[in-house]
Design a protein around this nucleic acid. Structure first.
Lengths: 237, 237
DNA sequence: TCGCATAATACTGTATCCATAATTATGAAT
DNA sequence: ATTCATAATTATGGATACAGTATTATGCGA
């Protein structure tokens, strides 16, 4: 239509995205204090758009704002993971159900193509590649479900989950197990067995939670205190 | 424990809350343009905290930001309602299931007390009172479910739903019907029949969607254009 | 040497100012 | 009279400056 539909994104949006990436990559790790001035100088911008970006990230739950104190990267407790994973299991399970009923032959073909990529990454033993392919498959299922709000909620929750390290795939045979779960999910979708697809997807998510718990149990030496700065100012009260 | 835990909320938070109330009360109706300068003058503050408040509201989905164009109250399409209500049905249904299993006798007592309030408001024919009592009951069920993240997601979605007028309760026998549905839900919880409680809660939400659809079908003359201002600048491309 | 009070410092919160882009108004040409 | 181009206006986006509060450092007293 008109040329001004190609609206250039506002600066605070770009800043928010860059901060997200730094949080997801754990360059900014949970508990780390975020200094407005320092970051603004780093990016060569003023504090105004940076502050707006932080407000957005706070709404997403990635950072926590303490009025007149500052802002730190949100720390998830085990309790949070115990809440979020079953929720994701419920939502993604539902998506699998709907997707199974709505998928056209062309959609199935695409799902299979995405799954094959997953198989290849697994064969290569590429953890990051597997992670990305896994995400692509799940996202495709969510889109096939046809409910944009469910997908939106799942995306938001996934962002929060990315606060935790994603190396549970490195655990013993977790990658192989995850792959096998995917195979069975795809099979159920292909066979138009919506109820089974839902159940398997549900179990798949809970399986992911279990792997994470196992990993956390193994590493029983969590970072005792948030990364320095202005001293310990977090009071979980 | 230290005195600074009584952190005074930042100005942008108060502004955000006041704007939420104006949106929920439909003083600011969907599609209405939000003028930063005008609002800042109204509240006697500068544009800075106001802009931060708008970023927060945008993250919540209550307003839509058009970079370099401005900001208007989000308009929900029927499609959105068709997506959100089934999602709420899924989530609140799950809450009912969990709540049924976890409720202590004291919890049951409280639920019954909340339901009685609903009965009283219905008897009085107080629509707003019924609405509030209804909300209180649903919220109690969500809290009993014990999953804070599910409750959080439901709360967020409920805020978005408040963009629509809530007068579907005025429809023919909708209030009576809603009350009856509540009675059956409470009965199922009391009888520790989690599966039935889930099913009934699920149906209750979908029933709410149906009432809204009926109302929208009746009023087939929607506001043709967003409330004035700088002319029609919304392009739903 | 340790604890507390006070001063210094650094960061967040808010206001003001400037730049830029979008919309509206104006005017000329067809 | 209508349409298009151009100028003026207005609102948003971003930067800077100032105020207030929380933390840290310093020094006094026990």
């Amino acid at each position: 239509m008109s040329p001004h539909n190609i609206a250039q994104p506002a600066l605070y949006q770009e800043v928010a995205e860059r901060l997200r990436q730094r949080i997801f990559s754990h360059e900014l790790e949970p508990g780390a204090w975020v200094d407005e001035q320092t970051l603004a100088e780093q990016y060569g911008i003023s504090r105004t758009p940076l502050r707006e970006a932080l407000k957005v990230l706070a709404s997403e739950g990635l950072v926590t704002l303490k009025p007149r104190r500052g802002c730190y990267v949100t720390q998830l407790a085990e309790r949070d993971l115990d809440d979020i994973f079953p929720l994701m299991a419920l939502l993604e399970g539902r998506c699998a159900f709907e997707a199974t009923q709505r998928a056209t032959p062309a959609d199935l073909k695409r799902l299979e193509s995405l799954h094959e990529k997953l198989e290849r990454q697994a064969a290569k033993g590429d953890i990051n590649g597997f992670f990305e392919a896994n995400h692509a498959f799940h996202e495709a299922v969510q889109e096939l479900s046809g409910n944009r709000w469910v997908k939106q909620v799942i995306d938001d929750l996934r962002k929060v989950l990315k606060l935790t390290r994603r190396d549970s795939l490195r655990l013993d045979g977790r990658l192989k197990q995850s792959l096998e779960e995917h195979r069975r999910i795809l099979a159920a979708i292909r066979e138009r067995d919506a109820a089974t697809a839902e159940a398997l997807m549900h179990a798949h998510l809970l399986s992911g939670r279990a792997a994470l718990a196992k990993m956390h149990a193994a590493a029983l030496s969590p970072n005792p205190s948030p990364a320095g700065g202005r001293g310990e100012r977090i009071s979980h009260g």
